[in-house]
Design a protein around this nucleic acid. Structure first.
Length: 497
RNA sequence: UCCUCGGUAGCUCAGUGGCAGAGCAAUCGGCUGUUAACCGAUCGGUCGUUGGUUCGAAUCCAACCCGGGGAGCCA
């Protein structure tokens, strides 16, 4: 089989491609077929007087997503997508697809989600899945090269790991079982067996979150390392993220281009070190005059943008009446764009004062809200690692610093408002302290006995973290919603397809 | 659970009290270099549902259903 992404090796030779019609245009005795075969898209040109009557009949009967086999000579052609073109000598149809629902026009979210099984064939979705795959492969490469062993944590568990989150309950032979919300506690057991391990699998959260950052089923990669402290944990997380970003930039440039990703936003973190700060510093920054000023400036720049957009809208509105048809379309498209941006600005007007208030009045001891993360991250072009959190707002298993007030947790926040992509910590390694915590939080000690064994039999300092795959894919791809970063997203109210 | 925006043709939308509309898709015809091709014609409706106000409701009111964004919670 020859695939479209290998066309450069077959210029001026006759080959056969198998695939689907991505788009179709005809012009009298010429037919242009944009063929996709899973590896890419190329244009195939069929000329009536160069093919048999049967082949011409087949070519003119094609519709979007029809499946077919095309034979022809590969030509280098600048005019064509991908830089190559097929001069067709024969066309064989597998099936003519009738009324493919997703046309090359715009569609709404609900419609596309209902047709997710078909939407995956579209260019942007295709590119996003390729980036996802590259990220997964980069993660495995990174850890395998460092002698980590990939092991799997169970999906059915008998108890919640942290007590706080809502879990999916299932019936397990008349016993209650929950779908795992993290593999971490198991990861710790595995690290005590192999030293360096990572788990990679689906996790489940039954929270009723309807936002662009949440799924009920998502994939998490969780390394756990014996003899690692917080500093080593941070270094590992930073090295890993840098490796992932570097790899995607190198190997998936074409996909990032399809996704219209502004890669200058990713390049800084290939060379620059990440920003590291303690929670207390982060709070100071949030409450600072500089942050307040930044938000005021943001509001002012929105006002200017709004004025400019409204002026532009008036100008093109006048032009519209006497414009030629193609220009009219261009104007109409631009008007939709302007309307959308104005809506966004309208929302910013409502949000920015709230963000400012939330940041200015932030009280030490609280967890950061979504807006606080955004406001903090507006000030950096590389990820920020926040450590030393108030112990009360962090999980019982996190080790505390010498003051006993601060947990040695770390959150890695991605730039551009993508939020928390990593949460991790150095783990509490003292049996006594851990027993105290469990009592304090009124957790059922019984279910943690096996976990406490890890502290009874050769306990060591250790640390680990969890990387949210979909948030990472969204950030690197520049996608605004995690639902486009997984083939079949599961979220509140969405179980099909 | 709460806040907020929305639901009109297969799709994307316009229509804010007085004849149900446009573009795309589909169907037919035209065109030898198209790039979301273009040009002409045809087809296409339970205006989310139920009830109310009104001479008259897609439009106003109420309840409910469904979806988007956000809060809380989190990766």
């Amino acid at each position: 089989m020859i695939y479209i992404n290998q066309l450069a090796n077959h210029v001026d030779t006759e080959i056969t491609l198998k695939g689907w019609v991505y788009n179709y245009r005809s012009s009298g005795s010429l037919v242009f077929i944009e063929l996709r075969d899973g590896t890419g898209i190329t244009q195939c040109v069929v000329a009536k007087d160069e093919v048999s009557e049967d082949a011409w009949e087949a070519a003119t009967s094609l519709k979007q997503e029809s499946s077919l086999e095309i034979t022809g000579k590969v030509k280098a052609d600048e005019r064509s997508v991908g830089g190559h073109e097929m001069h067709v000598s024969d066309v064989k149809v597998f099936q003519i697809a009738e009324d493919y629902p997703i046309t090359p026009k715009e569609h709404g979210v609900e419609f596309l989600m209902n047709n997710r099984h078909l939407w995956l064939r579209s260019q942007r979705q295709w590119a996003a899945m390729r980036v996802r795959n590259e990220i997964i492969f980069a993660i495995h490469t990174f850890f395998q090269n460092r002698n980590f062993v990939q092991m799997d944590s169970p999906i059915f568990t008998g108890n919640a790991a942290e007590g706080s989150t809502t879990l999916f309950e299932t019936d397990y032979f008349d016993e209650k079982a929950y779908l795992a919300q993290t593999g971490q506690l198991y990861g710790e057991a595995l690290a005590m067996a192999h030293g360096l391990i990572y788990t990679f699998g689906p996790t489940f959260r039954a929270e009723k979150s309807k936002t662009r950052r949440h799924l009920t089923e998502f994939w998490m990669m969780e390394p756990e390392m014996a003899f690692y402290d917080l500093k080593m944990n941070m270094d590992l997380a930073e090295d890993m993220i840098r490796f992932i970003v570097k790899t995607v930039l190198e190997k998936r440039a074409k996909e990032l281009e399809i996704l219209e990703r502004d890669i200058t936003k990713l390049q800084p973190l290939v060379e620059k070190p990440f920003v590291r700060m303690k929670y207390t510093e982060a709070v100071d920054i949030l409450k600072s005059n500089e942050t307040a000023q930044l938000l005021d400036d943001m509001l002012a720049s929105r006002k200017e943008e709004e004025k400019a957009l409204k002026e532009e809208r008036e100008v093109i509105k006048k032009e519209h009446g006497s414009a030629k048809k193609w220009r009219k379309k261009q104007i109409e498209a631009r008007q939709v764009e302007i309307a959308q941006r104005l809506d966004q600005i309208e929302e910013d007007y409502r949000n920015i004062p709230k963000w400012k208030e939330s940041a200015q009045n932030f009280e030490w001891g609280n967890d950061f809200g979504g807006s606080d993360e955004t406001v903090l991250m507006m000030q950096y072009d590389v990820p920020v690692i926040v450590t030393h959190w108030p112990a009360e707002i962090k999980a019982f298993y996190m080790k505390r610093d010498e003051t006993d007030k601060l947990a040695l947790g770390m959150d890695v926040l991605a730039p551009e408002g993508y939020g928390e992509i990593i949460g991790g910590s150095q783990r509490e390694d003292s049996l006594e302290v851990l027993e105290e915590r469990i009592a304090e939080e009124e957790l059922d000690k019984e279910v943690f006995e096996w976990y406490l064994d890890l502290r009874r039999f050769g306990t060591v300092p250790h640390a680990g973290f969890g990387l949210g795959l979909e948030r990472t894919v969204a950030w690197i791809s520049g996608l605004s919603h995690v639902r486009e970063t997984i083939p079949f997203p599961r979220m509140m109210g969405r179980l099909k397809p």
